[in-house]
């Protein structure tokens, strides 16, 4: 298993690497385009602000590489948001993989949503063995609305997409690497997805 975590300078990626280590897999941090293209599986992390993260992707040329990857790709948190069409955060143009816009929660609720909430209406092998209404850890101010590519929903202010999938691209708004044993199970499921590379 050649697992790459894309290292483009955005946020806390060590904890994803550590989570895979707990599963017995050595994930490699890389920003090298050839290495990323050749990987069996790719993790696209991201924590922080959308426009500056996107800027770093563009500077490294990864913005054209990621949407063309053929192997399973898992975007986490901001990674998932950047895979969408656009984000209200910093008026950011996204990678356009998921056909949905990322918007900010209103002030009717506390922003950011911070803590454990449940994921439901699970529709993907990514959630194999995960029960409905399982708790996951989330920290975010912006959300992807429900759309055709929604594979999990969460309720905060309203129902939104806590996970998305299109072809080989997966995205989760929550942090599987910080969501206890059930989160680790989702990472393990991702590792077990078939590759087309």
């Amino acid at each position: 298993m050649n697992l790459i975590i894309i290292d483009y300078g955005a946020g806390n990626i060590k904890s994803i690497q550590f989570a895979f280590k707990r599963l017995g897999i050595e994930a490699i941090l890389s920003s090298n385009i050839e290495e990323i293209k050749a990987a069996d599986k790719v993790i696209f992390p991201g924590v922080g602000e959308a426009s500056s993260a996107m800027k770093m992707l563009i500077e490294s040329g990864l913005h054209t590489v990621i949407p063309r990857l053929k192997q399973p790709v898992l975007g986490i948190c901001l990674g998932m948001q950047l895979m969408c069409n656009s984000s209200e955060e910093g008026n950011t143009q996204g990678l356009g993989i998921f056909d949905v816009t990322v918007k900010r929660f209103s002030n009717a609720v506390k922003v950011p949503q911070m803590g454990w909430n449940v994921i439901k209406e699970l529709k993907s092998p990514l959630f194999s063995g995960i029960k409905e209404n399982e708790f996951m850890y989330l920290v975010h101010s912006y959300y992807a609305a429900l759309c055709e590519e929604t594979i999990a929903k969460t309720d905060y202010e309203f129902e939104y997409s806590s996970a998305l999938q299109k072809d080989n691209f997966y995205g989760v708004q929550f942090h599987p690497e910080k969501s206890g044993l059930e989160g680790e199970r989702i990472l393990k499921n991702f590792l077990e997805l078939k590759t087309n590379n």
């Binding site: 806390n12 922080g48 602000e49 950011p112 911070m114 920290v139 101010s141």
Partner: peptide, 8 residues
Amino acid sequence: ADKFGSQC
């Protein structure tokens, strides 16, 4: 907040 995001 600008560099790492408010969430952290």
